[in-house]
């Protein structure tokens, strides 16, 4: 290829770099650009700028609060019980649906083709009934197993907190009520260890919330507040939450509890019902 011709090709390919970084090149163009990028540092540098531009475009969409049903369906899809029982129960149910008519047809065929023999027929019906009962029991066991798994996970967190308390190094701090007028007699206590991410929050005299609302726990770290989880108070105003924070609890300087929608919020939207400082507290040992 003559140098002039090669230069023209190079320019043409170069002009596709922006579209390539946006994902807008057709397959044949994509191949040409990728080959060119591999051997042209100038083009690779330009591509890096367009990639950064494309990445920033991702953030140009206006954030929109998703519908509440999204978090609910996510929770359902990722619940510990959602995988195991499904894989056990579905084939069983399918088998039950497929098998019973087939056996029944075979019994009918036997009755039609042979002389009436009541005992074998009754035995066949009994077999079908027992089979169906067994399949139902197996599916129930699968569902119970998933519940046990969820309880074991919850118990694991609680044991971790109790172990901290048992080993001595833990913090027990009072969490008084928030601004006057919210709930002056509400009170909370947090049990945690500075080196561990688990925490156990107990709260009393909390106002009972309307349906669709829950208490959300926030851990403060400077100006940032992250959610530690949601809980509800019972009719007596008593509520508790065992949580695992992203960092050891010694990294946080405050804990707040606010009233939020039952699906949770991305940041506190109401004044704290209870809350207090963790930073500077003396850990017991």
């Amino acid at each position: 290829m003559a140098p002039e011709e090669k230069k023209t090709d190079c320019t043409e390919i170069h002009e596709l770099i922006g579209a390539y970084c946006l994902g807008a090149t057709d397959p044949d163009e994509t191949g040409l650009v990728e080959a060119h990028l591999a051997e042209c540092p100038e083009a690779a540098a330009e591509a890096a700028e367009y990639h950064a531009l494309a990445e920033t475009l991702l953030f140009s969409a206006t954030p929109v609060e998703p519908p509440a049903s999204l978090s609910a369906s996510l929770l359902a899809a990722t619940a510990p019980s959602s995988d195991a029982p499904l894989s056990v129960a579905l084939p069983v149910q399918t088998k039950a649906e497929d098998t019973s008519p087939s056996l029944w047809h075979r019994i009918q065929a036997a009755l039609a083709g042979l002389s009436l023999r009541p005992l074998p027929v009754l035995a066949g019906i009994a077999v079908v009934t027992l089979l169906a009962a067994n399949l139902y029991l197996i599916s129930q066991i699968g569902a119970l197993q998933s519940s046990v798994d969820a309880l074991q996970s919850q118990a694991g967190q609680q044991v971790a907190v109790l172990t901290q308390v048992g080993e001595g190094a833990y913090l027990r701090i009072g969490l008084p009520a928030g601004p006057a007028g919210i709930a002056t007699d509400a009170y909370g206590a947090l049990v945690c260890s500075p080196d561990q991410p688990q925490g156990f929050l107990l709260a009393e005299n909390l106002p009972v919330l309307q349906p669709g609302h829950a208490y959300q726990v926030w851990l403060g770290q400077g100006d940032i507040e992250i959610s530690a989880g949601l809980f509800n108070a019972n009719a007596a105003g008593y509520g508790k939450l065992v949580f695992t924070a992203p960092l050891p609890m010694g990294q946080y300087d405050s804990l707040l509890v606010t009233e939020e929608p039952a699906t949770g919020s991305s940041q506190p939207t109401t004044p704290p019902t209870i809350g207090g400082s963790i930073y500077g507290e003396e850990y017991q040992s």
Binding site: P63, V64, P66, S71, L74, S266
Partner: peptide
């Protein structure tokens, strides 16, 4: 769910 709380509105938007 923490990830969802942080980025849910950006993802949905």
């Amino acid at each position: 769910m923490e990830l969802y709380q942080r980025f849910g509105s950006q993802v949905y938007g």
